[in-house]
């Protein structure tokens, strides 16, 4: 089981194409969970690294594949699982933010068409310094996202 997980981690690492560099902003493991074709909402995840000397704010995201994208944070409060809308995500200088299942995520509304595992989707991130960068997200089927660990620290 452990060996299987190790191998699957290596395969996952290979699956994710090389990180995207956008002027000190490095985005890794950008993926969207494949959803049942009937779904009107999906979630996207990534690791956003900020190698700049100053903090950076991710203020918007958009994609031709979705009607609307928001940033949400899933929290468990008084036994209730809720999604809290985040107007922006701050990535501290020389630090990173992890968007992951049951945590911070990109909330993807109204897919233009159902996306199948293996497809790539471009998402444009808008930062508070006026710069934007286009990131390629890969659509993945998750057998169980709970076992997907980011060994990243």
């Amino acid at each position: 089981m452990f060996i299987f997980r190790k191998i699957s981690n290596i395969l996952l690492a290979l699956l994710f194409s090389s990180p995207i560099y956008a002027d000190g902003i490095i985005i890794e493991e950008a993926w969207i969970r494949e959803a049942p074709p009937i779904s009107q909402v999906q979630a996207g995840y990534a690791i956003i690294n900020n190698n700049r000397n100053h903090d950076v704010k991710l203020i918007a995201a958009s994609s031709p594949a979705f009607g609307k994208i928001e940033f949400h944070k899933t929290v468990l409060e008084n036994g209730l699982s809720k999604m809290i809308h985040q107007p922006s995500i701050t990535i501290l200088s020389k630090n990173h933010v992890i968007l992951k299942p049951e945590g911070m995520h990109m909330m993807l509304f109204n897919p233009v068409k159902p996306l199948r595992a293996g497809e790539k989707v471009n998402v444009t991130f808008q930062f508070n310094d006026g710069k934007a960068s286009s990131i390629s997200f890969i659509v993945k089927k998750t057998l169980g996202a709970n076992t997907h660990q980011h060994n990243h620290h």
Partner: peptide
């Protein structure tokens, strides 16, 4: 989009 598919996958 997040918790339910995650739980169903589990």
């Amino acid at each position: 989009p997040d918790v339910c598919p995650n739980t169903l996958s589990m």
